[in-house]
Each structure stands twice: as structure tokens, then as C-alpha cells.
Design a protein around this nucleic acid. Structure first.
Length: 222
DNA sequence: TGCCAGGCCGGGT
DNA sequence: ACCCGGCATGGC
């Protein structure tokens, strides 16, 4: 079986076992992007507390968040962990948005409409140039906030590909991304659902240790 | 009680 | 081009 068929077969197995994902959880493109930064190396349950605090403070638009002092922003996102680092990273992302926006009106709502219609090949390098936005965060923003077909790779992807499809454990981000993107149709809905399924599988069965490996829905595929 | 979670950066080899 | 320590909360 070729790579495309193996990946599509993996995809249907996951979809059958877990059902559709309804991802990324978020009320707006801006909130999705904020969540992508907050979830770096962090449990999503803690990110939700931080997002709730930002909403309560009325800070879930670029303009409103920019009004906060770094200390105030850090205080609101404290439950997400590494909060001083993440407050600075959100600040850099807000600066990026302000540079890309056409005017103040663009920053007043959470739609990020002013980024719609850009080319993926132009936008990705610009996001990667933002301090605190690495490849996974950039791809999450591109895919889930802006609906552009950029395949997202994370720790679960690396583990699952190495354990179930025998890719090298030390495969790089770009290699893993190309493994999917080179053979799958560049469809944001497919990319989004595929990554969501991988994370949901990973949370339950594919942690750093192999404790639950035996009961994984993919175990029979090996 | 440690270990872990949907990474990334900066400084050192 | 890698390798590593730091960042930090809350759950199991």
C-alpha cells in the first residue's frame, strides 16, 4: 500500500473509532490564535481557564488585549502556565496584527478578516518571524483561524507516526509535515480533522510512555 | 509525589 | 546543525 492509501486508511480508522471532532474550539479566529499560543506545552484544560479569564475581562479582541499592560495580561492568563513568557508572546503577536491591519477598525473585532485571502506561502513565513510563534503555532493559526491548508504537526503526530507507521523517532517538523502534505489533497477540512483526530487519539492512548499502547484503536494496524 | 501537558527561545557546543 | 535549560500552572 502506498503512503497516500496508508494515511487515508489511518484517517478513516480514527474517524470511525472516535467520530468527528468539531475542532478547533474557539469563538472567533482571534480566540483560536490566542489559544494556539497559550497551549504551547500546556494542558488544554488550563488554557480554557485562561481564555475564560480573558473573555471575562473583555480582552478577546486585538484592540482590547493591546490595552492591557504586560503585567495585567500575564495575570489573566496565569492558569495557562509559563504566563510571563506567553504574555510577551501574545504581545508580539498583537504587534504583528497591528502591522498587518489596514487600520484601527481591523483590530476592533476578533474576526481577523484583514488576514483573509492572503497566500499561505506569504503568510506562514511572516507568522514564523513573530517571536514566540514556532511552526506548530503558526500552522494552527493558519489552519484553524484562517482556514488555510497548512498541516499541523505536534508531539502526538511524531509519536503516532513513529509507533504506528514506523517513521524515525527523530523526524523533523518539516519532514513530518511533508509526509502528510505531499500526498493528501490540500483541503483545510481534511487537514483540520486529521490533526484533531491525532490529538484526541494521543491524549488517551499515545502519551510519552507506552502505558496504554496495548488498548489503542490503532494497535491492530501494526 | 513527581511527572506530564496540543512548544519555543536563547545560549552553548 | 543539534542539544539543553528555562518557563509554570493544575490534574492525575
Amino acid at each position: 500500500m502506498n503512503r497516500q492509501n496508508r494515511l487515508l486508511s489511518l484517517y478513516s480508522t480514527l474517524l470511525d473509532a472516535l467520530g468527528p471532532s468539531h475542532w478547533w474550539p474557539g469563538e472567533s479566529p482571534f480566540e483560536v490564535a490566542v489559544g494556539a499560543i497559550l497551549t504551547q506545552n500546556t494542558n488544554w484544560a488550563n488554557v480554557e481557564r485562561a481564555i475564560a479569564a480573558l473573555r471575562r475581562a473583555g480582552a478577546m479582541t486585538p484592540a482590547a488585549m493591546r490595552e492591557l499592560s504586560p503585567e495585567a495580561l500575564a495575570g489573566l492568563i496565569r492558569p495557562a502556565g509559563t504566563f510571563r513568557v506567553k504574555a510577551a508572546r501574545l504581545g508580539h503577536f498583537l504587534d504583528f496584527l497591528a502591522r498587518e491591519a489596514g487600520g484601527a477598525a481591523d483590530l476592533a473585532d476578533a474576526s481577523l478578516r484583514f488576514l483573509a485571502g492572503r497566500e499561505l506561502s506569504e503568510l506562514r513565513p511572516r507568522l514564523l518571524a513573530v517571536k514566540g510563534v514556532g511552526p506548530e503555532t503558526a500552522d494552527c493559526i493558519l489552519l484553524y483561524a484562517l482556514n488555510l491548508p497548512s498541516f499541523v504537526v505536534d508531539a502526538y503526530t511524531a509519536r503516532i507516526m513513529s509507533r504506528h507507521l514506523f517513521l524515525p523517532e527523530d523526524a523533523s517538523y518539516d519532514e513530518l509535515q511533508a509526509f502528510f502534505a505531499d500526498v493528501l489533497p490540500a483541503d483545510p477540512a481534511l487537514f483540520g480533522e486529521f490533526h484533531a483526530l491525532i490529538v484526541r487519539l494521543g491524549k488517551t492512548w499515545c502519551g510519552r510512555t507506552r502505558a496504554k499502547c496495548e488498548t489503542c484503536p490503532l494497535h491492530s494496524l501494526r
